[in-house]
Computed example of a mutant assay.
Amino acid sequence: MSHQPVRTRTAAFSRRRGRRVSALVLAAVAMTVPIAGCSIQDAICGGGEYPVLNVGSTGRACVPNGEEPPKGYVRFPEGKVPEHVGDEWDEYWQSHTVDKDGKTVTVPEEAPQESPKE
């Protein structure tokens, strides 16, 4: 009867394997988070909402689909609706607004404030 030595996994082997699996899991999570998170984090409004513009300023709000904008707010002009933070229309509406007559106008820059005199 010939006895062959039984091969057992050593603690070192198990640690190395555990580290490889952990590294693979972390890599997969790291690659998934930016893809999944981007569209949600960067959206101007959440699902089921649309953005509206404060008349005469660059202020904004989000309104549930199917509801009218609140008093003092209007819908963005068709084709000029910001959808994601930093997109073309988001940047545009940082310096433009709609006046009380519905005309798109440039928002005047605020006058520099003087420092208090002592």
Rank of each mutant, 00 (worst) to 15 (best):
E78C: 10
E91F: 03
N65L: 11
K80E: 15
D90N: 14
E91V: 15
G72I: 06
Y73T: 13
V98L: 07
V63Q: 12
G66F: 02
G66T: 10
T97W: 00
E68T: 11
E83T: 14
K80S: 15
P70T: 10
E91W: 05
V81K: 06
K80F: 04
E78T: 14
W89V: 04
V81D: 07
G102N: 07
F76Y: 15
E88H: 10
K103Q: 10
D87F: 01
Y92A: 01
W93R: 04
D90G: 06
W93F: 07
V63M: 09
V63A: 05
F76P: 02
V81Y: 03
G79S: 09
E68H: 05
Q94R: 14
V74K: 10
S95F: 09
H84Q: 13
H84E: 09
G72A: 12
D99Y: 00
V63N: 06
V85M: 06
F76G: 01
P70L: 03
T97D: 03
H96C: 03
V74I: 14
H96M: 06
A61N: 14
C62N: 08
D87G: 08
D90E: 07
Q94L: 11
V85A: 05
R75C: 10
F76D: 00
Y92F: 15
N65V: 09
E83K: 13
V98P: 05
F76N: 01
V81W: 00
A61M: 08
H96T: 03
F76Q: 01
Y73A: 13
V81G: 05
T97A: 09
P82K: 01
Q94N: 12
E88R: 12
G66R: 04
E91C: 05
D99P: 01
H96P: 02
K80M: 15
D90L: 02
V98C: 04
D99T: 08
P82M: 03
E78L: 12
D99F: 00
E68W: 01
